[in-house]
Design a protein around this nucleic acid. Sequence first.
RNA 1: GUGGUUGUAGCUCAGUUGGUUAGAGCGCCUGAUUGUGGUUCAGGAGGUCGUGGGUUCGAGACCCAUCUUCCACCCCA
Length: 445
Amino acid sequence: MRPQSSKGTRDFDLIQVSRRNYVIELLRKAFQTFSFNPLETPSFENIETLMGKYGDEGDRLIFKILRSGDFMKSVSDKSNPKIKEIADKALRYDLTVPLARYVSQNSGKLSFPYKRYQIQPVWRADRPQKGRYREFLQCDADVVGSDSLWQEVEMIDLYSFAFQSLGISIEININNRKILAGIAEICGIENRLIEFTVVLDKIEKIGEEGVISELTEKGFSLKEITKLKPAFRSFENLNESIAFLKDWLNKSEQGCRGIEELEFVIKRVKDSGILKLNVSLARGLNYYTGCIFEVNALNVDIGSVGGGGRYDNLTAMFGLENISGVGISFGLDRIMLCLEDLNLLPDDIIQFCDVVIVRVDESSSDNGYKIAQELRAIGVSVDYYPDIVKIKKQFDYAEKRGASHVIIFESENDQDQIRVKNLMTGESYHMNRKELLIYFQELKN
RNA sequence: GUGGUUGUAGCUCAGUUGGUUAGAGCGCCUGAUUGUGGUUCAGGAGGUCGUGGGUUCGAGACCCAUCUUCCACCCCA
């Protein structure tokens, strides 16, 4: 059996784990600063909880878990069984639907608005690609149970806070689903809103001509497309774009409401300079109903590093009506790529061991181990080399472990002459037990 | 799900139109050298050439299937 990790999954070694933890801790801190509380939900849910929430495409990508026992017995058509006959659980596909389930299930004991953050892996049976895996960590913050636009304001402030702490310069594209609905209304295609937005969302990638040809392909008429054309325009200036939209959509009540919402938010966020109104921004998930955002890192070509928006009635499918929420997500894998590209990862975040204890023969084994115990008691990370092998090999080992010091017990060594070598400087000292403890104590501080 | 791409020693890769015992660098092991690891030298181990079929006198090279990698779609994060 050849060792091989499963498609679209990764192992993380010491360095990668350290770096990821560094980022996760900063995100956690940002979430806590904005008073979100942690929530963790199980890796799998009942299959009905997840199926049908992400569209047909989503259903296909959900990892389903086979029923236990001899479930095939009760399958009617064995050559073509129904999913629910053979699978009753599924791995979570995102963190939003489990949140909706949790909030609905616990609505009695939660106080609203309920603010939670959640950092957990999710699974998608997608075909892997650059920065896209079948198992990846999502970092979400959501607030549910308030219609207030202040929530949007806070979410954007949270984005700037978090990315600032990571040292990443960003711009946030912002739009409002109501504006998109308004555009559809003005152009007389309100019944094809989702189709239209999915295509419009690609404009950055495929350009105006691409969008036009794809819309044509989908059966939009030339007249409709001509009417839609103002949506392809992009503006550098927020006020300019708002003025334009106000004029264009003044006949659409919904569109006007969308613009008002945007204005409210834009006026109040801390760094409105990073906001960019982008009418073509739609975001795939069609449960969004209000403001939507997408975060792009500047100075690096990595795509979006986060996104989110307002959704109404996400809990309705679980029987809890009239609950509105805003959620944002941080794409950890993309953020890691971005930090690597920009060289923003500090190198002192990797937790190597501090000291390796080596010895020449068994005569110093007990003394050596005692030192290990004493050093550990004062919080030093100690590796006690277990075997008596050539000193060269033990030194090589220590260096590979990233240890900053080696403590050497030579056969003639008595307790008062313990040799300590600093691998960073190459300096070597002799000291007794007490001095040694003090030396490392000071190093810790 | 569609179309392409990749897979040779622990790592990075060579391997010429199918033809003898499949190579290099780094790493690893052993021994010397360097006054206790980091230098230098010498020697050595390690590959069913992703896996399974097939074509052929002969396959790492060709064909099919499968797994994996990366990429573009679809979709999305």
